[in-house]
Computed example of a mutant assay.
Amino acid sequence: MGPQQPGSSKKQNKAAKNAKMAAARQRVAEQREREAKAARRRSIFIGSAAAVVAIGVIAGLAAIVMTSDDGDSGPAGSIDAEVTVAGNVSSTIPGVVAYTASRDHVGSGVDYKQVPPVGGKHDQRWLNCGIYDKPVQNRNAVHSLEHGAVWITYDPSLPADQIEKLKAKANQPYMLLTPYSGMPKPVNATAWGLQLPLDSVDDPRLDEFIKLYRNGPQTPEQGAACTGGVGKPA
């Protein structure tokens, strides 16, 4: 083979240089593709995590709303109900204790000193009148008292036949009947600012209380609705 020509050597050098540049561009392109894929994976992961957090927040809010609306009992809050015994107010029914009570609306739990509550600050939503087999939210039931309801509460351990008697008495408009733990007496009749503790469902004063105070003269908002609020009677 004869000696290599100068022009041929230049062409080979240029071809080699072009090949190196092409290889370098290929490596850069591959690196950029890897980085792009990694960025897409991070974006999908972050988006999924955000979705999980959002679902958790929504579920938590839904649980709060359902707890507030379904009438289940909840822990007492830090807001004072502002209820005091009214020594200058009397009832024609022996044994009735009278109170003066604030009527402000609040958006959170209220600390009621009376068991069950007899009035005071309460939720802006009233409890639908009717018969309930489970405890209800105090702050919603108090709003129903403001609308004229008589709220009969009974110890959950009360015999079934006695509960049935109470249900018969509560089966009329502007009446609430619910179980209630921790009462001094097994039965209580409550209207806005008035309360009658009873030892027996057969005490004739219970019927007198219902007749006199169901949507009676003590009602701050006499004739206001006792339906269209929250809670589902049994």
Rank of each mutant, 00 (worst) to 15 (best):
Q162I: 11
T190R: 02
G229C: 03
L196H: 02
A24Q: 04
K134S: 06
D111F: 15
S78D: 00
A36E: 02
V89S: 03
W151N: 06
S157F: 09
Q124T: 14
P159Y: 07
G228H: 00
E164C: 04
K20L: 14
Q31F: 09
D72S: 02
A54T: 09
G216A: 01
H143C: 12
V106R: 00
G148Q: 05
D155K: 08
R41L: 12
K37L: 15
G130V: 07
P116H: 04
K14M: 14
D203H: 12
E208N: 07
G87Y: 12
V115Q: 06
D161K: 05
I44Q: 11
V136C: 06
P186E: 06
P117A: 04
M1H: 05
I93Q: 01
G2E: 07
Q222I: 05
G120M: 09
Y180E: 04
H143E: 09
V230F: 04
V65F: 12
Q124D: 02
G229R: 05
Q12P: 12
L212V: 15
V53A: 07
Q5L: 06
P117N: 02
A62V: 10
N13G: 12
N138Q: 13
G229F: 02
K167S: 10
R34D: 06
A50P: 02
I152K: 01
I163H: 10
N88S: 14
